[in-house]
């Protein structure tokens, strides 16, 4: 069984408030030149979901897929 994980950011809903970036314990996220959040360093992610829980705009989703 393998597990694949990724972080999805919906740029249409993101308002660039920086909350996900500031409270990520591993500095995985950043804002791009348009002020939208993006995944800058996925290797550091510990999949804690703090970003997903605190995004006021439902723009971050931590996706965990288990495939056998």
């Amino acid at each position: 069984m393998s597990t694949s994980r990724r972080i999805e950011i919906n740029p249409d809903w993101c308002k660039g408030c920086n909350i996900c970036v500031a409270f990520c314990p591993k500095q995985v996220l950043a804002l791009d030149e348009r002020g939208k959040a993006y995944v800058a360093n996925v290797d550091a992610c510990i999949w804690c979901r703090e970003c997903e829980l605190r995004c006021p705009d439902f723009a971050v989703t931590v996706v965990v897929e288990r495939a056998s």
């Binding site: 408030c17 995004c55 006021p56 439902f58 989703t61």
Partner: peptide, 26 residues
């Protein structure tokens, strides 16, 4: 969680960083 949202009305009207969205999510 997002299945409980009326997605057709998103993005919502709250200002960037408004905490009300965090409460709705919780």
């Amino acid at each position: 969680v997002t299945d409980y949202l009326r997605k057709r009305f998103m993005p919502h009207i709250w200002c960037p960083g408004c905490g009300h969205g965090i409460i709705m999510r919780a």
